[in-house]
Amino acid sequence: MQSFSDALFEALRLIIAFDGDLQEIILLSLKVSLCAVLSGAIIGFPLGAWLAVTHSRLRPVLVTLTSAMMGLPPVVVGLVVYLLLSNAGVLGPLQLLYTPAAMIIAQSILVTPILTALTRETISVLHDQYDDQLTLLGVSGRRRLQTLLWEGRHGLLTAVLAGFGRAIAEVGAVLIVGGNINHVTRVMTTTIALETSKGNLALALGLGIVLVMLSLLVNAAVLGLGSYMRRQGVSAHG
């Protein structure tokens, strides 16, 4: 077992040298999380906007469901996706288990409720503000949703960053459906867990530092965006 200072020194060396393994793991992490957030946005933006404006009787049920799903335990999501993608599962023939695609599916399930709920919140505020004017202009249906989503673009960007933060830091689901296979499905969080258990603290710590830096960057981006919007006279909720 390395001492903490040795591990830290080695970790910094790996980061500075931009070690090949480290590079591969970071890039796969980013690819999986960005794809998950993109999928989540494709579903969550229109669904959240629709929930914000609809008078459907299903609305309270769907709103409660999406809010509750924001706190889904990743390991449970991982288990369900595992069961669906395993050979005996409904999606077994797709042969996606232990591939980055399976990890993207699992993370999308985790991220979509966040994006849906934050989109609904952003668009609800805007809808209250714009409802009369859009009615007067004869804007309804899909066009109304598109307009509100565009008007809420700053708030939606915050939602995307929040979703990305959740995805990149997640370990349970990707570990179960990805299997943490070297050079195939190994991402930062699963590698940290594995290398720590093996006692290889340098790589674990190096990845931990990168993960924390990415997390800080995401938070700085959210804060910077909020500050930019205040300067522009646009509220943080769109």
Partner: peptide
């Protein structure tokens, strides 16, 4: 009807402009 929607306008006390 929707076809004549733009023939009747309303200017609200607080103007509502898009961002």
């Amino acid at each position: 009807d929707a076809a004549r929607r733009h023939q009747v306008g309303l200017l609200l006390q607080r103007p509502v402009l898009l961002r």
